[in-house]
Every structure is written in C-alpha cells, then in structure tokens.
Nucleic acid binder design. Sequence first.
DNA 1: CTAGGTGTTCGAGCGCACTCTAAGTCAAGG
DNA 2: CCTTGACTTAGAGTGCGCTCGAACACCTAG
Lengths: 139, 139
Amino acid sequence: MKIGELARRSGLTAYTIRYYEQIGLLPAPDKDASGQRDYDVSILTWIEFLGRLKGTGMPIREMLRYAALRGKGPATDAERRALLEAHRHKVRDHVADLQANLLVLDAKIAGYADAEKRIETENEQLSRKPLRARLTRAR
Amino acid sequence: MKIGELARRSGLTAYTIRYYEQIGLLPAPDKDASGQRDYDVSILTWIEFLGRLKGTGMPIREMLRYAALRGKGPATDAERRALLEAHRHKVRDHVADLQANLLVLDAKIAGYADAEKRIETENEQLSRKPLRARLTRAR
DNA sequence: CTAGGTGTTCGAGCGCACTCTAAGTCAAGG
DNA sequence: CCTTGACTTAGAGTGCGCTCGAACACCTAG
C-alpha cells in the first residue's frame, strides 16, 4: 500500500503520515525500488489505536513513549499497561470536569430561558388590554 | 484591585489578563492616576464564566463572539443563549466520543491484564514442582 | 534617598500538531 | 515521447493560546 492509499484508508493526510514517521510515531515502512513507501495493512490497526489515544487527548510525546515501548517487544507490556491506565485516569477526570462544567452551562442557559419567559409574560400582560381594546373596537 | 491581585484571585497570570484584555475578552478596566489597571471584583465572575467555557473547550474566537454580544446588552440574550446551546451540544458530543474511546482503552488494558495473568499462571505451573521440592527439603 | 516590588507597553518567542511549498523523481497511459 | 499524477526530501509556514523580555514608571518601606 502506498502512502496515498494509506491516507485514504486511515483518514490521515499523507503529510501527517510522513510527519508521524519522522517523529517516530509510525515505523518506517519498506520502500520500493523507486524509494516509495510501501505499507503493510497492519499499520492501519496501529494508526487506529493512535487515533483513540489522540481522541482522548493524549499528547504526541506520550504516544511516543508508548510507541517506543511497543517497539521493544512484549517485555514492556507491564509498563505499557501502566501508561494506559494512567492515561485512562486522566481521561476520566477530564470527563468528570467536562460534566461539571456542563452543569454550570446548563444553569446559565436556564437563566436565559427564564429571562425570556419573564419577558414573554410581560409582553402578554402589556398586550392584554390593548388587545381587548382592539377586539372591542373591531365590533 | 490591581492586576497582581486579580491574577492571584482569578488563577490567570497577569500576562494572560493583559492578553485577554488586548483581544477583547476582558473589558478594559479603569486606570488609576499612574496608569495602573484598577479592577472591580465583578470581573471575577466573568473570568470564572470564561473559565467554564474554556474548560469545555470553547475556542477563544467563540468566547469573543459571546463577549461581544454581552457588551451589546440584554437585546442579545437570545443570540447568546443560542450560542451556549450550540456549544453545549458540541460538548455533549465530545463527552460521548471520549467515553467511546475510553471503552476501547479499557478493552486494551484488559488485554494487557489477561496477558499478565496468563504469564503468571504459566510461572505458577513452572514453579510448582521446584517450590514443593524446596519446601520439602526445608523440613 | 534608594532599593525592591509591582506595574506599564510593545513586540518577540514558544510549544504543539500539523500543513504546505519547492524542487525533483518515477511509472503508466495516450 | 510526453504529459499527468503520485510520490520523494528538507525545510518553512500556520493557528492557537499563551508567555516572556526589555526598558521604563511608580509607590512604599527602611
């Protein structure tokens, strides 16, 4: 698989794929006779996992640590697991934070909704008499 | 209140406070005779609210839109409310996303845990005989 | 009177994660 | 053959949100 196809299939741009390779997040693939990158499909699994880490806000530096451990083989399993667990903790905290902030946001929105209602009520009260007057006059 | 105290009380740095003022996120406060910023405590409420928006990932550009509406008075209430509601939607989606990614992370971690258990079991099996042998010899 | 601490402005610099430009190579199709 | 399009490299540029440096002004305590 050449870089263009990998880009299409992974959702990354070719630029990003080369960048990830450059910083060591993706392993350097084999190159064909004319120097073009030739990827194995298995890279997609790794990219997808990286996407999960990124999707949970893991900075690239930390993904690099994980990638480095992975490169060293199964002896690093425990360390990798610890890294993921630590990250999971952070993400959970972050989610809790978001939810707390959402509550405040909800309250603020509810405040606007109330204000709107009060104004509607006032308008009703203001228009009740003129409305009747109009109807009366209409007869 | 001078900028240093506001920094302490708001959690922002003085640098950030000036920056926020510069981009229009904070209103320009009165200046005293020698040109120093003199803040009203009420600014703290606004800063705290900005913190909530930031805490939910709202980009500064959007906070600026909100701040601008706020500056135009209560006529913009409906628009402000709409802005907040749209943002709330995004945040909720984001939280859902995070949680989905967390599930994948959990599965990955569980995978490491399983691998570890399998190895422990193997070690147990490998060490069972020698262990007994040792205990037997110890008597 | 002077040293230290806090404030001022303006513009430059930083860390992150890409994103793109330039100049060139190469394979396949018309 | 020649064009087209996908690829290659090194390095520059972008957008975001700060963060800091330099040079200077001012107040307060010793």
